[in-house]
């Protein structure tokens, strides 16, 4: 689907490489762990009794973000965006009571030619730092802006 023409850095509206998209501060809550485990059909009883968060619990930061706002600040057209991939690198699992600061930055911003026209690929990296100043995990997502019709 994607023609691998040499990617190039784009000079379009947006946030520069390394620039901060948003910062979210939140506490990992036992009730939210259970709710998220149930919503993802995750069965390990420790999510219910020992307050160990599920692997993709970091997604709950969606509650603290304004999707339309950050998409607009990135200079992307929300109706043409799909999420191509998401990855997580873990130093440790999250636990109920963790106080986290999640800082999301632009890590890459490229344009690739496809059969239907240029596609923009924006990689965002979010570092989740705990109350002790240690990085618990890093989440990355690649947003793809499809060519305009």
């Amino acid at each position: 689907m994607i023609l691998l023409v040499r990617p190039k850095e784009v000079k379009v509206a947006g946030i520069p490489i390394g620039g901060i998209v948003d910062v979210v501060e939140f506490t990992v809550e036992a009730g939210k762990i259970r709710e998220f485990a149930r919503a993802t059909f995750t069965e390990d009883p420790r999510h219910l009794t020992r307050e160990l968060a599920t692997a993709t619990h970091s997604v709950v930061t969606g509650h603290y973000r304004d999707q339309r706002d950050f998409v607009a600040r990135l200079g992307l057209a929300i109706e043409r965006i799909v999420v191509g991939s998401v990855s997580w690198q873990y130093s440790r699992p999250l636990l109920a009571g963790d106080r986290l600061v999640a800082t999301r930055r632009v890590e890459a911003d490229l344009v690739r030619e496809s059969k239907r026209g240029p596609m923009r690929l924006v990689t965002l990296a979010t570092e989740f730092v705990d109350q002790g100043g240690e990085t618990a995990l890093v989440q990355r997502e690649v947003l793809i802006e499809r060519p305009s019709a």
Partner: peptide
């Protein structure tokens, strides 16, 4: 991810990359 960590234990997961 739930299927994976119910099996291997979430504390043992070092990385996960998902493509849609």
């Amino acid at each position: 991810a739930g299927f994976l960590t119910d099996w291997v234990g979430v504390e043992n997961l070092r990385s996960l990359e998902v493509r849609f």
